[in-house]
């Protein structure tokens, strides 16, 4: 009993070793359940055991298809997402600093955000063709909204007492922005970027579903149409890894940029 509670204490503790252990434990759990379900369900169309998926993955890798698809998908996201973040932060900044803009453009942006922009994907593809341009526009538009919203909210949420204290030292508008408003908004912005990252991955897959010559979304659709469940699951797992590593990276970034929020 003692060793079990000791193990629990370790898993709930802070630190890199415990975090890694937690991750391995949850991955192992998923693999075990997956294997168990696959051994009960006979149809290999519905589910494929983990080992066969791994095999499919290595075949994709050997044939070079995996790398072509990875370059297409990751390349498109790697270019589109930073630009989406830049646009989101800039527009959020503009909205937070101008009451006029917030009142006029704000409702429009809210409306645009509540429209499932993703549903317009076929339209963008019709306009921009099957290549990079349509992927770029779909990913950018879909992933910039959470960043835009959290930037504006974060900048507006700044404690007015902190601003007053800065003003009492005769701080200029720019100094207040740099030393008070922006640091205050930073954790908000990063959490927006985390949400945006998840949406960027959804957007790229949808864009590739509707029209692409390569990419994870293209490969998943092709595998689905040829009933190759092993390949389909292989790419889904790769997407999961991509999402998780992005999320971990932004978590790390938040810890680096906002250390005062850790033990609050």
């Amino acid at each position: 009993m003692g060793s079990i509670s000791g193990l629990l204490d370790f898993l709930e503790s802070k630190g890199r070793a415990a975090a890694t252990a937690r991750l391995l434990l949850s991955v192992a759990f998923v693999l075990v359940v997956w294997e168990a379900v696959a051994s009960v369900v006979e149809s290999r169309l519905l589910i494929v055991p983990p080992l066969e998926v791994a095999q499919a993955l290595s075949e994709e890798s050997a044939s070079g298809a995996l790398w072509t698809n990875a370059v297409a998908t990751i390349g498109a996201v790697a270019i589109s997402f930073p630009i989406a973040a830049l646009i989101g932060i800039s527009v959020g900044l503009a909205l937070a600093s101008s009451r006029f803009l917030a009142l006029t453009a704000g409702p429009l942006l809210t409306a645009l955000n509540s429209v499932p922009v993703i549903a317009l994907a076929p339209l963008f593809i019709a306009w921009l063709g099957l290549g990079f341009a349509s992927k770029f526009v779909i990913v950018t538009i879909f992933s910039m909204f959470p960043i835009l919203v959290t930037t504006e909210v974060g900048l507006r949420a700044t404690d007015r007492h902190l601003v007053e204290a800065a003003r009492s030292f005769n701080a200029s508008y720019w100094q207040i922005f740099r030393t008070v408003t922006l640091p205050f908004a930073l954790p908000f912005i990063i959490s927006g970027i985390r949400v945006g990252w998840a949406r960027a991955l959804v957007a790229i897959i949808v864009a590739e579903f509707f029209g692409a010559f390569a990419g994870f979304g293209f490969a998943i659709l092709a595998a689905g149409q040829s009933f190759d469940t092993a390949v389909l699951l292989a790419y889904v797992i790769l997407l999961g890894i991509l999402g998780l590593s992005g999320s971990l990276f932004f978590e790390w970034l938040e810890r680096r940029l906002a250390p005062w929020r850790q033990d609050q």
Binding site: H161, E164, V180
Partner: peptide, 10 residues
């Protein structure tokens, strides 16, 4: 010196 906590938390 203000009444509230006016220190920059970061």
């Amino acid at each position: 010196v203000f009444q509230q906590d006016c220190l920059l938390p970061w």
